[in-house]
Amino acid sequence: MDEALPIADVSASSSSEAIIRLHRVDNRFNTLVVHENLDLDIRKGEILGIIGGSGTGKSILLRTILGLHHASAGEIFVMGVNMNTASEEKKKRIRKQWGVLFQDGALFSSLTVGENIAFPLREFTSVSKSMREAISLMKLDLVGLPLSAYDLYPGELSGGMKKRAGLARALALDPAILLLDEPTAGLDPLGAADFDRLLLGLRAGLGLTVCMVTHDLDSLHAVCDRVAVLAEKRIYAVDSIANLLHVKHPWIQEYFTGPRGRMASHARGLAALCQWEHSGADQR
């Protein structure tokens, strides 16, 4: 997978570390073919970004992984379990292993933020009430929400706070996999940068595997180990951004070397430079 060529068969690559694997997945809606023969491996411990133009089916892909949308054909393995054939019991256990952040947080609107975070704990574990509260307060703090948000209802939160609260709920059971749908969309640049740092911190601290659908170039540069490009009805390429730059596909070229792509990579270069100078100054 090192060479940045379009990948014909992902299953040939090292499979031992794939925590989620999609194998020859098709998605069709009547005559509209969204995905055809789509292969994707998500490796343990990585942060994978999924990008693609509008209408290439990024959200459908995420929903397919989650089992909210049933693929027309193909197989999906999560932690080695085939989600098409596994028993309902087994699938339930898999579902406890992932946390999902939907685009607008998808918080339960009749529960406060605190109750939202405690919800999975109440449903799936038997920890005491005081412990539940302690855990949800910890998660609230972890995602960088103020204590005052604990008793608020989702309707009273701003968009960015909703996302953070949704993330806290997704993290409530310490999942192994975190699936994010456009986590930084609608956040201001500072908030988005905070979110990026938060993700990196979580990955380092909890050993999470993260798969995120995103449009945010800064975010891609800042956190993603690999980026999967959805084009021509499949994962056209999946690699680090540096390697993707050499892929000869008009959309990918335009995406990364267009005005905004250049700016984002430039910003990253600048940041790295600043950091380097900073650390150099420290050493001196």
Binding site: S11, S15, S16, E17, A18, I19, R21, H23, K44, E75, F77, M79, G80, V81, N82, T85, R93, I94, K96, Q97, A176
Partner: peptide, 21 residues
């Protein structure tokens, strides 16, 4: 067909699944 796509669970991954045991 299924044998061809046999996908052994990675080491240590499956153990983290067994919340009941």
């Amino acid at each position: 067909m299924t044998a061809e796509f046999d996908f052994p669970p990675p080491d240590g991954l499956f153990s983290s699944l067994s919340s009941r045991e």
